[in-house]
């Protein structure tokens, strides 16, 4: 029996975001909407990675005055998830910038943001 923990619900939310992202990228015709779907997909992956580090009763992995040195290693959340998310955000920003730049060039060339018309090579 699956327990409805916060981690499980978070995983399900990220699965949903990933699915919406994939569906949007595949089936939406507008290039800007495809980019938005791509960012949703990326956010879903980020949410999954952050959720990996979560456990019930965990505390943020920053030492604050008065923290017990002995208890901190076991109480702090796992840091590899948020660490990988940092990478993913950087890659996401770079990729989105390039996608938007390419979209602008395609719009200037074809006068439309519809992928179907761009693929057919219909010029304005």
């Amino acid at each position: 029996m699956i327990e409805l923990t916060l981690q499980f619900l978070s995983f399900m939310a990220s699965a949903l975001l990933i699915l919406i992202g994939i569906a949007g990228m595949l089936f939406l015709d507008n290039l800007i909407k495809k980019i938005i779907a791509f960012t949703l997909l990326s956010d879903g992956v980020n949410l999954a990675l952050v959720s990996l580090g979560y456990f019930e009763g965990g505390v943020v992995a920053i030492l604050t005055p008065g923290t017990s040195v002995a208890e901190f290693p076991q109480n702090a959340v796992l840091i590899f998830g948020p660490g990988i998310v940092l990478t993913n955000i950087v890659i996401g920003v770079s990729t989105t910038a390039v996608l938007v730049a390419l979209t602008m060039v395609l719009y200037k060339r074809y006068g439309t943001l519809k992928a179907s018309k761009v693929l057919k090579g219909e010029r304005k």
């Binding site: 699956i2 327990e3 923990t5 981690q7 499980f8 995983f11 399900m12 990220s14 699965a15 999954a48 990996l52 580090g53 456990f55 992995a61 920053i62 030492l63 604050t64 040195v69 901190f72 290693p73 076991q74 702090a76 796992l78 840091i79 590899f80 948020p82 660490g83």
Partner: peptide, 29 residues
């Protein structure tokens, strides 16, 4: 895949860095 991961994540290197945080810097991440 997520259901299999749920509650089964190995702690890996994270506790080691948390254990050394007081010698290095407060922000383990």
């Amino acid at each position: 895949a997520f259901v299999q991961l749920n509650g089964n994540v190995a702690r890996g290197i994270s506790p080691e860095y948390n254990r050394l945080a007081h010698l290095q810097q407060p922000n383990s991440l």
